[in-house]
Nucleic acid binder design. Structure first.
Lengths: 217, 217
DNA sequence: CGTATCGGATACATTCGTGTATCGAACGGA
DNA sequence: TCCGTTCGATACACGAATGTATCCGATACG
């Protein structure tokens, strides 16, 4: 009650220590792995902690409920992937692209296909649709993805003399195509045809949503 | 032990009665609803039985495990949807289509968007990726979908003078687009723009994967 | 260094779900 | 109508996961 220091009615932990951040991090990492293996719904607090090298005490000291952890894991990992993608794009900066296929190659190389992540996000998606306050989280994330990747795509297209009349429509289309084709690739891992079709679907969509402007830069 | 009648070492129930089929059916139906609401992973045997108006005895008399029920529900519902779609197509038989947009309209009207089903199948998908012997089930289903719907699509396209060079590629592309856009529609229910974009994405893809042959029929 | 707070470990009580074994009623065949 | 079989209900025992309360080692700070 009689807190003298800087305690303005904040019930959270007063001083966030270094150790705490480390623990939290390891729990997030472990949870992602366990969710991918067991499924969120069948995952137990103990499994996550064991995989991270803790006991259940660590969990209850950092999270209230498994749902909270699920959300944290998903947000953490998805921002991580967005960052990684942007970095990959920046690395391509000066690489020359000649045509739409070249753009697609870049795009697909920057956007990784991660089966573990697919499993987890598929289940999170279903979970979010069941939880009203989580719906917005999903659309925000999709917008963030588009906002982060599109500029690079435009730049690449501009290089080959193409412009995009309706950027948002293309963004939405590409996200849909990415999500939809991901499953196909995972369910037939060895099948190269599926992956080629994925590539050409991207090419077709990008072509359809962009138009030849004039000269190449 | 000393079974005299027609018991050729078959451990399953000898005579499948009418009541049994009815029970099974109601369990499947109830399970679908509960899975959609609670998620498969968090669903309990008792919840399913209660919703169907039974007690747990009914379940254990019809299924071994929840996983088995999950698979049964998914297979039942997805074949049901395939049938329904084909019927919808057949009803359109003589309706006149003028252009690609007309074809898309038909297509989207025949293929329903069902959020409950999306939730369940998303989770089933993740579940199947975790379970080696279920991967093939998914690809088989996707092939069945394509095989069932494509003929109608070709017929409609033929009517407006278009042919499809690579049918399988188009089938795969459309399934991917359907799956990918479904989530977008569900996460922003009120947003009509999203749905329009979905429609035009279908149109673009169909256009890109078909070519003008000659005259209309 | 010494001390106070923090963070994770441990122990405990409790709830919840499962699987099985048994019972009784409905059903189907003659 | 009667009898045997089937199917779902009920009861029970067990295991597993949760949440909390408490303890002790680690860490930050003066």
């Amino acid at each position: 009650m009689a807190d003298r220091a800087n305690a303005p009615a904040e019930p959270g932990p007063r001083r966030v220590t270094k150790r705490r951040a480390e623990t939290r991090q390891r729990l997030l990492q472990a949870a992602l792995a366990v969710f991918a293996e067991e499924g969120f719904g069948r995952t137990t607090v103990d499994q996550v902690c064991a995989r991270a090298g803790y006991t259940r005490g660590a969990f209850y000291s950092n999270f209230e409920t498994l749902d909270e952890l699920f959300l944290a894991v998903w947000e953490h990992r998805s921002t991580e992937l967005i960052t990684r993608t942007r970095e990959a794009f920046e690395a391509f900066e000066q690489a020359a692209v000649k045509d739409v296929d070249g753009v697609v190659t870049h795009l697909l190389r920057a956007v990784p296909l991660d089966e573990d992540w697919y499993r987890v996000s598929a289940e999170f998606t279903a979970h979010a649709l069941r939880t009203p306050e989580l719906r917005r989280v999903i659309v925000e994330r999709e917008q963030a993805i588009a906002a982060s990747a599109m500029p690079f795509l435009f730049a690449a297209l501009a290089e080959i003399g193409r412009t995009v009349p309706d950027p948002e429509a293309l963004g939405q289309a590409l996200v849909a195509v990415h999500d939809g084709t991901a499953l196909q690739c995972f369910s037939e891992p060895g099948n190269t045809t599926v992956q080629q079709r994925r590539t050409s679907l991207f090419a077709h969509v990008i072509t359809a949503y962009s138009s030849e402007s004039r000269q190449q830069s």
